[in-house]
């Protein structure tokens, strides 16, 4: 219990100072390495005047294993509410956007083909708008976000089957310029 509290304190200290790349006592506590790794993106992203640190700054968006690597939200049939499983993903993007106010995101809603093209266009729009609302709740600014729907017009997967349909019921979070 004490260990956890200590490591949490250390992580927050590391995050706060933002310049420490090699923690002084990293071997002291178990669990710190992984915690440190998690903290690293935030640390790197924090603005700092130090040019020495700037060289090692990495955009969390570019981390293929990071929380922002996944950019698609999936839905059951004819549903536009973000499912519980995808909420942490949306929250992670919201946090990133709140910390990077210059970033712009286009949310593109899509639907499977089981509906009229126009109904699916409206459904895709509701999906994109639903993700937008969650991003705003999570700290993103309205001005960073635009939405569009492609309905069933741009299917990722072809075929009249659930395997294809589930890939097509989707909102894509598209960072502009990325």
């Amino acid at each position: 219990m004490k260990k956890i509290a200590l490591s949490a304190l250390l992580v927050s200290l590391l995050s706060a100072c933002g310049t420490v790349k090699n923690g002084p006592t990293t071997t002291t506590f178990t669990g710190l390495d992984s915690a440190n790794a998690t903290a690293a993106p935030a640390s790197a992203a924090a603005s700092t005047p130090s040019s020495a640190v700037k060289q090692v700054e990495a955009d969390a968006l570019d981390d293929p294993k990071g929380a922002l690597a996944s950019r698609s939200v999936y839905y059951p049939f004819d549903v536009d509410v973000v499912q519980a499983a995808d909420r942490p993903l949306v929250a992670a993007h919201a946090k990133y956007l709140s910390e990077h106010p210059a970033r712009q995101v286009k949310l593109e809603g899509n639907a499977d083909e089981r509906g009229s093209n126009e109904y699916n266009l409206a459904l895709g729009q509701r999906r994109a708008d639903g993700v937008k609302k969650l991003l705003v709740v999570g700290g993103a600014k309205d001005g960073q976000l635009s939405t569009a729907s492609y309905g069933e017009e741009k299917p990722k997967a072809a075929g009249h089957n659930e395997a294809a349909w589930q890939q097509n019921r989707r909102t894509d979070i598209k960072y502009q310029g990325k």
């Binding site: 126009e118 266009l121 409206a122 729009q125 708008d129 635009s146 939405t147 569009a148 729907s149």
Partner: peptide, 10 residues
Amino acid sequence: VAKFKGTNSA
């Protein structure tokens, strides 16, 4: 004839 934010259609 219709170009508001979001979807304009049908």
